[in-house]
Simulated assay, not measured.
Amino acid sequence: MQTETRTTDAKARLVLPKSFANATVIVEQISETEVRVRRAKVVAEDDLPFTEEAVTPLSDRDRDHFLNLLAAPQPPPPALKAAAARHKARRG
């Protein structure tokens, strides 16, 4: 990675290297004295995947286990009951 020193003009404009020509950039202010300029990758909105497309369905075993827990939920453990009682005492 090469480091260069460049000077801004009176309007705080900076001339970037030619590799940034016609590019969209991200300007991050890291600190009061440091700014980071990075080339951004622009993706068309139509090309973004839906979250639902990335979800993997449950296996048959996991699905059955989940449905059994919904049909017959297990009682809460003592630690959860104690935490709920402490929370209720603090709130009212």
Rank of each mutant, 00 (worst) to 15 (best):
V27R: 02
R13P: 04
A10F: 03
A10Y: 02
V55I: 08
A44P: 10
D60M: 06
D9E: 01
A89L: 10
D62H: 06
T3L: 14
R13C: 05
F20S: 04
R61N: 11
A54F: 05
P76Y: 07
D9R: 04
R36T: 05
T5R: 12
P78E: 03
L80Q: 15
Q2R: 13
K81S: 15
V43K: 15
L67D: 03
P77N: 11
N22F: 06
G92Y: 05
E45C: 06
E4S: 14
F50L: 13
E32Y: 12
R13I: 02
A84V: 15
R63I: 03
V27N: 00
P73Y: 00
T24Y: 06
E53K: 05
L70N: 11
R61E: 14
V43N: 03
L16G: 03
V42E: 07
A21S: 04
P73C: 01
A71E: 14
M1G: 12
E32T: 13
L70H: 06
T5H: 13
P78W: 01
A12L: 13
L16D: 01
T3H: 14
T8N: 00
T8Y: 00
R61V: 10
R38C: 14
L70S: 03
S59L: 06
L80H: 13
D47N: 11
T56I: 10
A12F: 12
A10C: 04
S31K: 11
D62W: 02
A23T: 05
S19P: 03
P76N: 09
T24D: 07
A23I: 03
A23Q: 06
R38P: 01
R90K: 08
V42Q: 10
N68C: 13
E52R: 09
V42T: 08
R61M: 15
V35E: 00
S19W: 00
